[in-house]
């Protein structure tokens, strides 16, 4: 008796092939100048690759809901760390002062 039936060998090779193709694709797209799109494209491909590794090499495709919850939790916290911190940096240079008559503040007026 085995605790878990092993996966079919070809799934691993197929997964490897897909990951190699995606690596080449991300390298080629990075050499093109996509402007503002370059980062989303590169990260999007990285996310797909990561999902392939997690789902098939790490067997999450067929794992318990608890494992999926654990992964979701860690990704959620990572997202909180990255995005909530960003609320500060994104809004720092915004104009909170109403455009005012700053001639009044010029030196020599008082």
């Amino acid at each position: 008796m085995s605790l878990h039936p092993p996966a079919k060998a070809w799934t691993y090779w197929a997964n490897f092939l897909a990951l190699c193709v995606l690596t080449v694709v991300t390298w080629l797209t990075a050499r093109m100048d996509l402007g503002a799109l370059s980062t989303p494209v590169a990260l999007g491909i990285a996310v797909i690759k990561a999902a392939l590794v997690v789902l098939f090499f790490m067997h999450v495709w067929e794992s318990t809901p608890l494992t999926k919850l654990v992964i979701a939790m860690s990704l959620f916290m990572l997202t909180v760390l990255l995005t909530f911190m960003f609320t500060d940096y994104m809004t720092r240079n915004y104009d909170v002062l109403p455009p005012a008559d700053h001639a009044a503040a010029a030196p020599g007026k008082h």
Binding site: T26, W27, A30, D33, K49, V53, F57, M58
Partner: peptide
């Protein structure tokens, strides 16, 4: 699992560190 995780980290490090300026070189 640990080794696949190490792989995962690299999958993100590669675009973030290497590919940022690839278009400049090209």
């Amino acid at each position: 699992l640990y080794w696949h995780f190490v792989d995962l980290v690299w999958i993100f490090l590669f675009p973030l560190l290497y590919l940022l300026g690839a278009h400049l070189g090209a």
